[in-house]
């Protein structure tokens, strides 16, 4: 019994480590998701013991109109990701994974699901730029932009660290995207499941039917 408890504790510690490492800019070359993949017995989803409250974000959508995240996604299964469109790798991969998985849900479930992409680079990601980019992925996805400090605070409330896009001493652009997708339950509106960068289209395809009903994947 005791041994089991320790094993569980170790697992939990490993999971906690992967979370705290996000955005800390240390010298590890390996993607954070690799660690959780090893620790989590092949499961992409981390079900949170202490779910996140949905951030109180009021931003601007791709049509230039005000979008109140809590009000507009209330009672709907919602997936939130923080990224930017000048990101050729992980951001489009993550959003395309969600788009492909979504299309495998029954139509009624697809219509209920909200997928929200919040930019971490609002200076470059105008509503129009976000709209063009998301249209190439899934025209039903919601893109939000606005004041960076507001976005950063919203991300932080979900344990996601982002920094403003800056230029380094050589004039090269340095940008930051989140490494997690947070799933919010339609039942409680709480962020109860977290996916790391290693989550594949198959993982999302398998889990979305459960998330659509607020069940544990």
């Amino acid at each position: 019994m005791r041994k089991k408890t320790y094993a569980m504790a170790a697992l939990f510690a490993a999971a906690a480590l992967t979370l705290s490492a996000c955005g800390s800019g240390d010298d590890s070359n390996k993607p954070v998701a690799d660690v959780s993949a090893e620790a989590g017995s092949g499961k992409a989803a981390t079900v949170l013991d202490n779910p996140f409250e949905k951030p109180d974000l009021v931003l601007t959508d791709t049509t230039g109109k005000k979008y109140d995240l809590r009000a507009r996604t209330k009672g709907r299964p919602t997936l939130v990701y923080f990224g930017y469109t000048h990101c050729p790798d992980v951001c489009p991969l993550t959003m395309n994974n969600l788009a492909v998985a979504k299309k495998q849900l029954p139509k009624t479930e697809q219509d209920k699901l909200r997928v929200v992409f919040v930019t971490t680079d609002p200076a470059r990601d105008t509503p129009a730029a976000l709209g063009t980019w998301l249209k190439g992925i899934d025209s039903d996805f919601i893109g939000l932009t606005g004041d960076f400090a507001t976005i950063q605070a919203g991300a932080r409330s979900l344990g996601i660290t982002i920094e403003p896009t800056t230029k380094d001493k050589n004039g090269k652009v340095v940008s930051v995207h989140g490494t997690q997708v947070i799933a919010f339950s339609p039942k409680t509106d709480a962020g109860y499941v977290l996916y790391g960068e290693g989550a594949t289209v198959d993982d999302y395809t398998k889990d979305l039917p459960k998330i659509a009903e607020g069940k544990t994947p």
Binding site: S28, L93, I162, K172, T179
Partner: peptide, 27 residues
């Protein structure tokens, strides 16, 4: 190079002797 979600442009990448240089998603 991407490290923990931070993307930085680099001027060059070292190819180590008898080693590999990986350009892989997430890195």
């Amino acid at each position: 190079a991407t490290e923990d979600g931070t993307m930085r442009e680099k001027e060059s990448f070292a190819v180590p002797a008898e080693g590999t240089l990986d350009f892989a998603s997430g890195g």
